[in-house]
Write a protein that binds this DNA or RNA. Structure first.
Length: 591
DNA sequence: TTAGGGTTAG
């Protein structure tokens, strides 16, 4: 065989390898082709493997392939932009290997290979999910240096990246404001950034600006807008968004329908969420889970369980999240036996290993049912370490059941593990208040002050005429505060006549009974309800959203108010919904 | 021969 035919054959072999790799989409096929490549002496040519990394759908195979491409034997002179781009993309798509995408980007620069306009969206996407602002900033620096900042794709990914990094939202807005031309992706990235951070009012007001700008929102924009409504509990705005979607004929993708379902479920209209699910032709696990979880938080546990069963019959396999919804349904509705049954079924039938969240649901369920001993036993036997959420559940249960000493010791241990978490100190200080150990309580507050910590103040939001009002305890900032406090006095008189007794044991302050009553009477929930009674016609349902759990005095007072004023009152607190009507609450005083 | 924004829980 002469040299020419050897070269021809090698080229031919290379060509046929490329052709084979083009259709290769699995690891097993790849390893087969790879052995040919090695036999033919082509393994040092990364370009052959580039073909594979760019076409393969199997991400494990890509890891395998790139380990050869970037082996020490490879001829680095043959590395090119496309090779790096495909490798970076492959890793940027893999949740567990995002940092590798950035590593390959750095290697690209080290090898002297120039990035192009396709490189940055991949790298920035990886930075976004890593969430480190400084990393993102340094990549942004390269974007500027290499003059790729005029590309709208790159700009949009920059907005997304900053919007996903802790402390980056102002930088996102800076990039966004400087963009000469925004498209629907730019607006969605910025609105989505606000929504993810819980800056929901900003998200909605930016959406209004988008409408003025004349750029048409699409289904993806609307998903973020809806998630902002969901966060605020703003049902009226949410309903308006729904009619906007209809009117503008926005593509009703599965994701958009899911966002609508979740909005209705979390803004208090669970029946509407259920109706939307029924009307969806193509539904996925998220659609089902949103409603199951919605039913759970509305205290309709049996219906949640029934819907879960229906989902399985429909051939949709439950996942980790749907089991959280299901178990929390059992927990919120006191279905202890059902909960235990499903917890076992999760492993046996569906091959899902329970995670800490599922153990958390079980502990919560046992504690709510008053089975504190069993809950403690359960935690001790858990194969994973209890997380702070599980510990706090136990501590709360200890407080409710008068096991203050035990509560104190768990809280002290928790503070040892999590010294910067302010809610642990609040717990301990509340335990001391219940023990009437005021001097210890004062000491805790001093420690908190020294560390610059503050208790999250309770606040209640209410939506009236498309405006959102927020109240904090003792709030006097509202321009109608005089009328509101007069209304509160009237409510108090009528409630007492009807048999209401203030639950002063809830007031964890060292003050006399009369002052305790006064403190209770100024809780943000009561202020918001008084405001609603003043501003809405008789018979109109009242919906409020509380940032913390509703306290038992407000719970009892709201029952009286619903009867005295003949109003349906829907309260969303941090954990669940309470529907008050005719002096009763849907939670059956069990929350 | 490659590109950008989104949904469920905790």
């Amino acid at each position: 065989m002469n040299v020419v035919s050897l070269i021809t054959n090698k080229r031919a072999a290379e060509q046929s390898c490329l052709a084979l790799l083009k259709s290769c989409n699995s690891l097993s096929k790849f390893t087969q082709i790879h052995s040919y490549i090695i036999k033919l002496g082509l393994h040092s040519n990364p370009l052959v493997l580039t073909k594979f990394t760019s076409t393969s759908a199997d991400l494990n195979a890509i890891s395998y392939a790139s380990s050869f491409v970037f082996s020490p034997e490879s001829d680095t002179r043959l590395y090119d932009t496309f090779l790096f781009n495909t490798t970076i993309r492959a890793y940027a798509q893999r949740n567990d290997l995002k940092t590798k995408a950035v590593k390959f980007y750095n290697l690209m620069l080290e090898c002297g290979v120039s990035p192009n306009k396709f490189t940055y969206p991949f790298v920035l996407k990886a930075c976004a999910s890593i969430g480190e602002l400084n990393l993102g900033k340094s990549v942004h620096g390269s974007v500027i240096k290499l003059r790729f900042c005029d590309d709208v794709h790159v700009q949009n990914t920059l907005v997304h990246m900053y919007g996903s990094c802790k402390g980056g939202i102002l930088f996102a807005r800076k990039v966004f404001d400087k963009m000469p031309k925004c498209d629907s992706v730019s607006w969605s990235a910025m609105i989505g950034g606000y929504a993810r951070l819980g800056l929901s009012t900003e998200a909605i007001s930016l959406f209004r600006k988008m409408q003025i700008s004349g750029v048409c929102p699409d289904d993806i924009t609307m998903v973020s807008v809806l998630s902002a409504c969901t966060d605020l509990g703003a049902l009226e705005v949410g309903k308006w968004v729904e009619s906007f979607i209809e009117k503008e004929r926005v593509n009703k993708s599965v994701e958009l329908c899911n966002a609508l379902i979740d909005m209705f479920a979390k803004c208090g209209d669970i029946d509407k969420a259920l109706k939307l699910l029924r009307n969806m032709i193509e539904k996925n696990i998220v659609s089902w889970t949103s409603v199951i979880d919605g039913l759970a938080t509305h205290g309709r546990g049996l219906e949640a369980v029934a819907l879960f069963e229906e989902m399985i019959r429909a051939g949709v396999a439950p996942d980790y999240v749907s089991f959280i919804g299901l178990l929390s349904a059992c927990s919120h509705s006191g279905l202890v036996d059902k909960g235990r049954e499903y917890f076992d079924l999760m492993k046996k039938e569906f091959n899902l290993v329970p995670k800490i969240e599922h153990y958390g649901c079980m502990v919560d369920m046992l504690c709510r049912a008053g089975l504190l001993k069993e809950a403690l036993d359960f935690v001790q036997k858990m194969p994973i370490e209890p997380n702070p959420i599980v510990c706090r559940t136990l501590i709360n249960a200890c407080c409710t059941h008068g096991e203050l000493k035990l509560g104190e010791s768990i809280t002290k241990r928790l503070i040892g593990n999590e010294p910067m978490h302010e809610s642990n100190y609040v717990l301990l200080s509340n335990i001391y208040a219940k023990m009437l150990r005021w001097e210890k309580k004062t000491k805790i507050r001093e420690v908190m002050d020294k560390m610059g910590m503050r208790k999250v103040p309770g606040s209640t939001m209410i939506e009236l005429d498309n405006e959102i009002y927020e109240f904090v305890a003792g709030d006097q900032s509202h321009n109608q505060h005089k009328e509101i406090y007069e209304m509160l006095d009237e409510m108090g008189r009528k409630m007492k006549m009807a048999g209401y007794v203030p639950t002063t044991r809830e007031v964890l302050l060292d003050i006399d009974e009369e002052d305790k009553e006064d403190a209770l009477n100024r809780h943000s929930e009561k202020l918001a309800i008084a405001f609603a009674l003043l501003k809405t016609p008789p018979g109109t349902p009242i919906r409020i959203v509380k940032n913390l759990r509703v306290c038992s005095d407000c719970h009892s007072a709201t029952k009286f108010i619903s009867k005295i004023y003949n109003r349906e009152i829907v309260v969303r607190d941090r954990n669940r919904f309470h529907h008050f009507k005719d002096g009763f609450c849907s939670c059956g005083d069990f929350w």
